[in-house]
Structure formats: structure tokens, C-alpha cells
Design a protein around this nucleic acid. Structure first.
Length: 518
RNA sequence: CGCAGGGUGGAGCAGCCUGGUAGCUCGCAAGGCUCAUAACCUUGAGGUCGCCGGUUCAAAUCCGGCCCCUGCAACCA
């Protein structure tokens, strides 16, 4: 038996100056499906998430609340994780960039880059607002070059700082993209980054001065490390860079960074360059997902007034409904939309009316006519239904979509190719009528339908872990739920005993999988 | 002339790479069924596939031009 392939994946780390919103949750969901899918398929998975804490805004926010930054961050980290747990996000580790392991790793990294000659001292010149105590871009300022917050004119200011020699990596980056065509996904983002690297790759000021909160630059302690340089490093400090070399070697390079499309440039240009500068391998793949907008097309985010608390949705409906809506309705590579009306619509149509209802009608037919036990089915092969459904092809298509992070398409496939035909098949064969004249034929039909549910449960496992398990464990399938893989859907391992419905039947019926929202 | 994505029946999307009867979900109308969560199934109405031109026997699909919308444009992550 060979060592299982390792799969290290990460999400972007979040700013804890406000609570998580559905946009941030969307990203974690997408990564979670990937993590769950890879685990199912036998990979040794390490799924990392975290918070990005070494920023001035966090320190300011803490000051506003009259608390120290660290306890503030710890409290926020707990609040974030509360949401992630409620959504059944299966992360293996949660790093806070204020942790000692991160500080140590960061300092080691920046020192290494410095020793390798890719950091030099220089001056940064730009527009500075005294009120904000920070530099501003032209875009940040109004037409009269005034700070829109303080309404005072920005002044030209020159400040000593340290630069990371990003421009030196132009050729190496371009070669890297050529040698790794799958590095940037979806593919549409490739040109964007390529263009950026070819035309305007500039050295980056990676230090800030005059701040107490943050990570000290080891070779020049007057400075702290700029958040972006420090934030990206969470991907390696969490797995032991600078603190546990063996562990780091085990997991690095990351198989996949799941990020928002807006930070593609940092992950696709600056980050691999940083890795090269420190003499470590760049990550294998970066996936820039789309955003969730509200009905008016506005981005849902902390700065808008349209924040939807994930917890509201979870407590009002369920984590599974939450997961389903965003995974089914919002294309992960592209943008999606959220509205309460649509949420109810999608959940009712797909979860209650289709999947849930199919489960109810099949189990009911079983309990009512066969006392939950299908005699002499121990060695039965799937029958009629499977002859006109090429399950193997369907599963492979779903798999391709999942591996490409095209979750909405994967789910659509499952509904269109497996669930809809199942409902139609029941309609065509009318087992509730046929059972009066040909019980053996109906047995076969129900056997096939249960087989269909088994397949759907396995395919849905990464998406709806709880609902899928409920379906699967309603029957006495021989294979344990923990060990199922996608291949098992079409290989349909034989039963050794007769097929039985083993779910509890409170009123002679199974508990509905998903109640219609009214 | 910065870069990228998008403009397809009332709403939301797929199809475009690899041209050939325009598909899916919701909504709407009629019918069927009663195992099921008033769920399910069938049929129907509804589209100049942003605009103009080109290539072709044939274009939503390829090529050129134009219009509109949305992100990004590095020191805000």
C-alpha cells in the first residue's frame, strides 16, 4: 500500500474587524466541499483556515472597543469559528496571525529572503493623510486630493522602508505559468495575471513604521511587516515553517489555495515570487472564486448595509439549506446572487420537492408494502432502471466538475441525470398500482430506486454531509458510510443480506429529509 | 484605444472552445396521478440568443466593429 496522496488546501484568511458574512462563508463552503471530496477519495487532507490579524484596522477597532488587540482577535477568532462549525466546515486547523508560531515563521521567512538578497532599503513616496496616519492612493482621494474621511488635503510624504524585489522575478514567474498551465484557475484569470506580470511588476514596499501591533522586521526592528507580506505566509507557518521542519516538508507545497478573485494578483504573482525568493516551492494551484451579490447587484460585504448574518440563515433554516443554496445557486468560478425569496425557492424545489420527496415516497412504498424488508434481494443486481442510465459516465462528469470547483454544475448534473429520471421512472412504472398485481416486479423497482438513492447520497456527501448520511444510513447497505467513494456509485457493491429500510418510522413514515419552507 | 468577465423567452442561468432542429430551474396555463412534504408526472404559451457587418450551404456558436453593465488597475486587505 502506497502512502496516500497528500492534499493541502487553504482558504484566504479573514479580517476580523467585523463578523463573517455570507460572502466569506461562500469561500469556506467551496473549499470545504473540495476537502470533503478529497478525503472521500482517499487523500490525506489538511484543510487550513484562519484570520488575518496584523493590521492597523484591527488594532484601531480594538482600541475603539477599549480592549487590547490580542484578546480582541481571540474573541473574533472564536466568533468566526462558531460560524464555520455551524456550517460544518471541516477545517483541520485555524491559524491566527497573531500567534507565536506565525510570528516566528514570518521572521524566519523574511530573514531568509533578506539573506538571499531580495529585500533592499529604499524610500516610499506617496500621498499621506495625517488624520488616517497612512498613505493613500490617487483613487482614495477626492478631486482636490483630499482625504474623504478627514476632508483634509493629503500631503506628499517620503518615508524610508524596505522593498521586496518583485520585479526581479518577472521571467521566472512567466516561465512558472508556462510550465504550470493549471496554476491559475479558472482559466479566465490567467490573462489578467500574465498581463500584470508582463507589464507592471514593481517592487513592493513590505514594511510599515510607527506601529506597535504587528510583526517586527528581524533585521530592522524599527519596522513591522506589511500585512500582505505577512498574511500570505500563514499558508506555511501553519504547517510548521520555521518551527517544525518535518511537518512543513510533509505538507508543502499546497495543492490548492481557494481565494476571492479580487486577490488573485497577490496569490498568483507576489506569493510565488516570495516562495522563490525564500527558496521554497510555489503552491500548485490557486482558484479565484466569484462573489455573492445582492439582488441589486451590489457586492455583499462588511462595508455595505446589506450584510446577511450567516447565523440568521442557519438558525432560521439549517446549515444544509445554507450550504445547498450557495453551492447550487452561485457558480463558484463566477458570481452569484443572494435573496431570501430565491433562497426559499431553491431549497423548496430541489431539497424538499425533489430529493426529499423522492426519499419519502420510496421509503413509504417500502414500509407499506414490504414491511421494510425486500425478500430475496441479497444477490440482486440493479435492474431495469440502470440499463437506461449510464451511471458511470454521470459520476465521472460530476467528479470532473467537483475537481474543477464547478459545484453548481456538479449538483445540477446530479439532479438532472439521477433525481429527475428517478421521479419520472416512478411515474412511468406506477408501483403503487402495480403492487396489487405484481409484487415481484415492484420489488425490483424499489430495489432500483433505493440503489438510486444510495448513489445520490454518496455523490452528495461532500455537499450535504448530514442529509446524505441520513439517506444512506436509512438502509442496511453493507459498506460503511465512512468508507464510501465516488466509484462505489457505479460499481454498486452487492448486498450480502436482503435490502432493508432501517430508518426509524415514527408514524409509519420516515422523518422528512427537508421540510418545505412556507 | 489599460485588463478581465458578462449582455440568451417574465426572473435566474447553461449552451459558445469542437458551427447544423435554442436547453435547464423558477414563475404562468391546461391535463394526469394519488406512493409522497398540496409534493410528483405530461403537455402548452412565451425568445429578432445586446447592435451592425463578414466567413459559410448553415452562426447564439467563428471573425471584425460598436453599444451597455460589472469587477480589477498594487501599498485598503
Amino acid at each position: 500500500m502506497t502512502e496516500p496522496s497528500r492534499f493541502f488546501l487553504t482558504t484566504a484568511i479573514d479580517y476580523p474587524n467585523s463578523r463573517p458574512h455570507i460572502g466569506t462563508a461562500f469561500e469556506k463552503l467551496g473549499a470545504d466541499v473540495q476537502a470533503r471530496y478529497r478525503r472521500m477519495q482517499g487523500y490525506a487532507v489538511f484543510f487550513l483556515m484562519g484570520n488575518d490579524e496584523n493590521t492597523v484596522k484591527v488594532a484601531k477597532r480594538a482600541a475603539e472597543l477599549g480592549v487590547e488587540p490580542k484578546p480582541y482577535c481571540d474573541d473574533m477568532a472564536e466568533q468566526f469559528q462558531e460560524v464555520w462549525r455551524a456550517l460544518a466546515i471541516s477545517y483541520d486547523d485555524f491559524i491566527q496571525t497573531s500567534e507565536a508560531r506565525h510570528h516566528q515563521g514570518c521572521q524566519k521567512f523574511i530573514q531568509k529572503v533578506y539573506d538571499n538578497g531580495y529585500i533592499y532599503k529604499g524610500n516610499y513616496e506617496g500621498w499621506y493623510c495625517d488624520g488616517c496616519e497612512s498613505f493613500k492612493t490617487e483613487k482614495d482621494l477626492d478631486d482636490n486630493r483630499r482625504c474623504p474621511i478627514h476632508l483634509t488635503p493629503a500631503v506628499r510624504r517620503v518615508e524610508p522602508c524596505h522593498f521586496f524585489a518583485l520585479s526581479k522575478f518577472q521571467d521566472r514567474l512567466i516561465r512558472f505559468y508556462e510550465e504550470n498551465p493549471d496554476f491559475i484557475q479558472p482559466e479566465s484569470r490567467r490573462n489578467e495575471v500574465l498581463n500584470l506580470v508582463q507589464t507592471e511588476l514593481r517592487d513592493v514596499n513590505i514594511t510599515r513604521s510607527g506601529q506597535s501591533w504587528g510583526i517586527r522586521v528581524p533585521f530592522d526592528p524599527d519596522f513591522t511587516i506589511w500585512v500582505w507580506f505577512d498574511a500570505l505566509l500563514n499558508y506555511i507557518t501553519a504547517i510548521g515553517y520555521g518551527t517544525d521542519e518535518a511537518r512543513f516538508q510533509k505538507w508543502w507545497p499546497a495543492q490548492l489555495h481557494v481565494i476571492g478573485k479580487d486577490i488573485t494578483r497577490f496569490h498568483c504573482a507576489q506569493w510565488p515570487a516570495m516562495c522563490m525568493a525564500a527558496g521554497i516551492e510555489p503552491p500548485r494551484r490557486v482558484f479565484g472564486h466569484g462573489f455573492v451579490y445582492d439582488k441589486g447587484g451590489r457586492k455583499i460585504g462588511k462595508s455595505m448595509d446589506n450584510v446577511v448574518e450567516p447565523m440568521d440563515l442557519i438558525t432560521k433554516f439549517s446549515a444544509e439549506a445554507f450550504r445547498f443554496y450557495f453551492l447550487r445557486e452561485c457558480p463558484f468560478p463566477g458570481d452569484g446572487e443572494f435573496s431570501w425569496e430565491r433562497f426559499v425557492e431553491v431549497c423548496n424545489a430541489d431539497l424538499a420537492n425533489n430529493l426529499g420527496n423522492l426519499y419519502s415516497r420510496v421509503t413509504r412504498l417500502l414500509s407499506q408494502n414490504y414491511n421494510c424488508h425486500l425478500d430475496d434481494t441479497a444477490k440482486l443486481e440493479p435492474g431495469e432502471f440502470y440499463t437506461d442510465t449510464d451511471v458511470e459516465t454521470i459520476v465521472k462528469q460530476v467528479q470532473e466538475h467537483v475537481e474543477a470547483c464547478e459545484y453548481s454544475q456538479a449538483l445540477q448534473r446530479i439532479w438532472l441525470k439521477l433525481l429527475d429520471p428517478a421521479n419520472q421512472y416512478l411515474e412511468r412504472t406506477e408501483p403503487w398500482k402495480l403492487v396489487k398485481t405484481d409484487k415481484a416486479a415492484v420489488k425490483r423497482i424499489l430495489y432500483d430506486m433505493v440503489e438510486q438513492l444510495r448513489g445520490v447520497a454518496i455523490l452528495l456527501k461532500p455537499f450535504l454531509p448530514s442529509m446524505a448520511e441520513t439517506i444512506y444510513t436509512s438502509f442496511n447497505f453493507r459498506q460503511s458510510w465512512d468508507s464510501v467513494r465516488y466509484e462505489d456509485v457505479w460499481s454498486h457493491p452487492r448486498q450480502t443480506e436482503d435490502l432493508r429500510l432501517v430508518a426509524e418510522l415514527p408514524d409509519g413514515k420516515v422523518k422528512p429529509l427537508f421540510m418545505r419552507i412556507v
